[in-house]
């Protein structure tokens, strides 16, 4: 039996990826692991946007939004990784739990 792929399939996929992303952000202690979780959530949002744009709205808003989100994700990753490098150069680790000098 061949299922016709509809809006709900995309939404389930997106919700799944979102949950995986949140799980990843919550459990990883490595900064890059957390960043991967962020990217997963952004991609889940992208799937949502494109699916909604195709099935519901009928105008291209969501597609354009998704392009901007891809761009944002790239910019954010570039900056975040530069900051991770800086952190690594000073503290020789990217374990976020090791950054514990600022507290109180």
């Amino acid at each position: 039996m061949i299922l016709a792929v509809g809006l709900n399939h995309y939404l389930v996929l997106s919700a799944l990826i979102f949950s995986l992303g949140v799980l990843c952000m919550a459990t990883k202690r490595n900064a890059i692991g957390i960043l991967i979780g962020v990217e997963l959530v952004l991609n889940a949002a992208n799937i949502n946007l494109v699916a909604f744009s195709k099935y519901n709205a009928g105008v291209g808003d969501g597609h354009i939004f998704a392009v901007f989100v891809i761009l944002l994700a790239a910019a954010e990753a570039a900056l975040a990784i530069a900051i991770f490098m800086n952190f690594y150069n000073t503290l020789r680790t990217i374990d976020v739990d090791r950054g514990d000098e600022l507290r109180g």
């Binding site: 957390i34 979780g37 962020v38 954010e76 900051i83 950054g99 600022l102």
Partner: peptide, 15 residues
């Protein structure tokens, strides 16, 4: 401190 602060800022902001 700056390295740690920016790491926390970027991760929290990205999330």
């Amino acid at each position: 401190l700056a390295a740690e602060a920016s790491l926390k800022y970027v991760l929290f902001g990205a999330i």
